[in-house]
Design a protein around this nucleic acid. Structure first.
Lengths: 248, 248
DNA sequence: GGTAATTTGTCCGTATGTATT
DNA sequence: CAATACATACGGACAAATTAC
């Protein structure tokens, strides 16, 4: 049932693409095998080379084939590989706090990763990090929303000295100050219990359930450069996200 | 610093695209405004129409401009809008349980959404759903992993009668049986406490913290057709996901 | 290693169709 | 209806990459 609308008038390149896609899906050309040359396809479909190329171009966008000069156009996937897209326009959207909250820095110091911490940071035990402890509070009532431990690569230490009236995230502050952008974020969500240390600042009893979220930001140039662990006591935070299917 | 490699030899259409993109970024053509016509661009760049079109085509793929026959090509964004991509190949990957777990169905019945339930399902209070209660257990020790409440659109009721030796998700079972695919998933993660009802089947004390995940699957044809709420007691489950930046 | 043949990539000019104004 | 502007299609030419001899 891949051919849905026979009645609809297809353009010539759409028709060529449809036929070739069906043949690829049917396995006429296996993965790695070459399609006929553009010249041969011109003859087969009685079409000009630009029409054939336009058809192939669409299949390349779908990730079905790949073309190499002097060699040919070969199949790399039997079906367009779908991706699932999280509908964010940026990593900052991942954690959306109301605008009326702000981050209050409590302590900043340099530490060397202990074995335990290195596990969480997924770094070596040698590496030094800037450790920032902070809380997120509502602007007016100053009610605590969450606790934050942030581990920042030393080369970006200066962000912690910046004034932050808009309540921007560390990720965005680093981006603005150093021009460093995250290419990848690894997110981990789990349930934990409030321990002795966090009980008093968050104003909840020890053992209260909380949502912990670890986010590791990295890019090819700087590697893993920011790891944050936020702890949200029960009922103060929900993590929401939308996913959509997406054809490449 | 958008122009990175002056030295590299650019093709003609790449050069045209580069100039036009810089002009768009600089605000030469505001959002909603038209670029010069293809014919005018031909003259300005002393290039053929196909070269100009190839340049514009790239900018359309980037979401910078949109073209309408008989009207013109107009700017819709001043910069290529990045998306954040969750690196899943399918929705099934969203909840990855070890292969050695399976779903044990406990009870199935049809219900009409109460006001409270309708809120969670984001449906009308009139609508009827098939309510499935189940647990996920490890294959060998039969230790409980999680509790599952699933609400299934009535037209897909037959999935609950299917044998499921592979431990497939309901989402996948519906897809296999009816050919229905989800186009969208809305995910909500929060902390809850185990209540009286779940305490005994999960083998944990009442009040134990747990990770609750609500997933709503929908597509344009069937609307919201599957909503699941899984409850994972502390330390039995972590939600992980990777995000990547992605240029459209 | 070098040359020739093959194949895709880029570019041109023209003609016709289709949607909008 | 007419003019305008993008969409599709054709055929030809040369460049660049790859392969085979």
């Amino acid at each position: 049932m891949t051919t849905s609308k026979q009645s609809a008038k297809l353009t010539r390149y759409q028709l060529v693409a449809q036929v070739l896609r069906q043949e690829i899906a049917a396995g006429t050309y296996g993965i790695g095998q070459c399609l006929p040359t553009e010249h041969e396809l011109c003859q087969r479909f009685s079409a000009s080379r630009s029409t054939i190329r336009k058809a192939i171009e669409g299949m390349r966008d779908l990730g079905l084939v790949e073309a190499r000069s002097g060699y040919g156009t070969f199949v790399i996937s039997l079906q367009p590989q779908e991706k699932v897209v999280q509908t964010l326009s940026s990593f900052e959207d991942l954690m959306q706090y109301p605008a009326e909250t702000y981050r209050k820095q409590l302590e900043v110091r340099t530490i060397k990763a202990s074995p335990e911490l290195a596990l969480m940071l997924q770094s070596s035990t040698e590496r030094e990090w800037l450790w920032l402890q902070a809380m997120r509070l509502t602007q007016y009532s100053q009610a605590p929303i969450s606790w934050l431990d942030a581990y920042i690569a030393l080369e970006f230490s200066d962000v912690v000295g910046l004034p932050n009236p808009a309540g921007a995230s560390l990720l965005k502050q680093i981006q603005d100050l150093y021009g460093v952008q995250a290419a990848n974020a690894r997110v981990e969500v789990f349930v934990t219990a409030i321990d002795e240390k966090l009980s008093e600042p968050l104003g909840v009893a020890r053992g209260t359930p909380a949502l912990a979220i670890i986010r590791r930001y990295s890019n090819p140039e700087d590697g893993s450069y920011l790891v944050t662990r936020s702890v949200h006591p029960e009922n103060r935070f929900r993590l929401n996200f939308d996913l959509e299917k997406h054809l490449p």
